[in-house]
């Protein structure tokens, strides 16, 4: 239950505080994706429901029903499948795989939005957004790993 509350808070922060800074809004740094990434590494199958819920909340906030839901669930599914088979707890591996998933997530979002609407992507903003998403996921991973080590 707490996890869903965290997803709700993250989607709220993402859509209200970060979306105005990044145009178009759906390209804002994806905090929900970073959370999904951490859950996938725990090999928790319920991650797809969290991803679905997070996507649904983001879709409600962005009025883009289906976009975040589909991309987040697909990302969660791929991450879970990947980390279930290969999980090397080396920072370079975690960082590299996270970067690939984030880039894949953003590419899918742009592809889907481009299919339905016409818009221009600012490469600079997109790059900043992708970097911030990777950094937020990686820093959270490091914090969680440190906490687990201490425990």
């Amino acid at each position: 239950m707490i996890a869903y509350l965290v997803v709700f808070l993250l989607s709220f922060i993402q859509s209200s505080f970060l979306s105005p800074l990044f145009s178009p809004g759906f390209l804002a740094p994806d905090l929900v994706l970073a959370f999904i990434f951490l859950n996938s590494m725990k090999e928790d199958k319920r991650v797809i429901f969290k991803a679905f819920f997070g996507g649904f909340m983001l879709d409600i906030f962005h009025d883009s029903l289906g976009l975040f839901m589909s991309v987040n669930v697909l990302s969660a599914y791929l991450m879970y499948m990947f980390y279930e088979k290969i999980l090397i707890k080396r920072l370079s591996f975690v960082f590299g795989s996270l970067s690939v998933f984030v880039i894949l997530n953003y590419s899918l979002k742009i592809l889907l939005m481009n299919y339905k609407y016409s818009f221009e992507v600012n490469i600079f903003i997109l790059t900043i957004s992708v970097i911030l998403t990777i950094c937020s996921g990686f820093v959270t991973y490091l914090l969680v790993a440190k906490r687990d080590e201490q425990a």
Binding site: I48, G55, S64, G66, S70, K116
Partner: peptide, 18 residues
Amino acid sequence: GFHITSLFLITLSLVVFL
């Protein structure tokens, strides 16, 4: 069940969006 649920949720979301 995990595969089917994932596939169902992705398809449903895509249909809703597209």
